[in-house]
Design a protein around this nucleic acid. Structure first.
Lengths: 179, 179
DNA sequence: GGCTACATGTAAGCGGTTACATGATTTA
DNA sequence: TAAATCATGTAACCGCTTACATGTAGCC
């Protein structure tokens, strides 16, 4: 069973929602480590329903619009817990176009190389800044409540990753300057 | 044009080789930031040949075996340089099953959570150790020669990434211990 | 002679993106 | 009443993985 299915089960284990809401959930809360568009979510929800891992109630919004409010079933919770307990080995590093470009950047002049790295650093710094603004959403650091603690941990993971990206590029830029 | 094509052009800009050699090159030198199997490489080389960006000479190995030794063409070099000079914006964060699992780990007991994180930390520490062993391959730190300098930079990027992963997990584990 | 590595391809299938398609509800 | 958002789907396509398929060369 693909990871997307577990992502959906996980989201539904937090709270019931429509496919539409779920697409927004991926865009907002999960975007740092997973993503899925509605075109992938709707068919997957259909499959999960067929497998009995989720179920939906139809809610009427306004006069005629039928919304499908999905919930996780007991069978779904069991299946999800099995995945959640399984340790999944580290996969091969994900594709990174920028690092690929850097690897071949010996063909560029120091100035051309520097321009790419400065642009990248600016983006990572902006992302880091954006992440740090979110720190205030936590009641304490680290939070005591379990659900919030995990939110904090993945947030911290993103912060540390961005700090690493920044310090890497800063070092690279310093190296370039010596040339 | 997909990134794989530029990866291939980049590899061939370093030195001419067969599709088979290239698959090994991806497995060894590039695996930290890109990957491609021979089943993807051969068709792509065919396309690139049709586009006139690469060309091959047939070499006879032994008595009958025909090897295709691929080289980048001048047109290929131009096309590659254009890509190499282009700044490509930061994409949405790549999918990370472990972080997804952590996000939902509030459903687990502290002990169950800890087991996952300890296992992960062990893998990252091992990878970091493995990376650090490669430091000796550089003539100096940082290297003066351009090609080696870029090898060093991507290596450093991998080291910093792994150090970040380790320190993130160490913090997470410490947090768990306080619960 | 047998095993491993070299060498080149194709086919099926999966996960994901982009685009197509439709219509209701809410808000300005 | 127009625009933005809510809401649900399908279709075509792309990049990549796994498996299928074949045969040669070098080494023990």
């Amino acid at each position: 069973m693909s990871t997307l299915k577990y992502a959906i089960l996980g989201v539904l284990s937090r709270s019931s929602m429509t496919g539409y809401d779920m697409a927004k959930e991926f865009e907002t809360s999960l975007f740092e480590f997973w993503n899925a568009k509605h075109s992938q979510i709707y068919p997957e929800l259909k499959n999960l329903t067929a497998e009995g891992l989720v179920a939906y109630d139809i809610e009427i919004s306004g006069n005629v619009l039928e919304k499908k409010l999905y919930s996780i079933t007991e069978k779904g919770r069991q299946e999800f817990r099995k995945w959640e307990l399984t340790y999944h080995k580290l996969q091969t590093a994900s594709r990174d176009e920028f690092r690929l470009q850097m690897y071949f950047a010996y063909t560029l002049s120091p100035g051309e190389r520097l321009a790419l790295m400065e642009a990248r650093l600016a983006e990572h710094r902006q992302k880091l800044e954006h992440l740090k603004k979110k720190e205030t959403q936590f009641s304490s650091v680290p939070p005591k409540q379990e659900e919030e603690l995990m939110d904090y941990m993945v947030w911290l993971g993103a912060v540390i990753r961005e700090e690493g990206n920044c310090s890497w590029l800063e070092t690279c830029i310093r190296c370039c300057g010596e040339t």
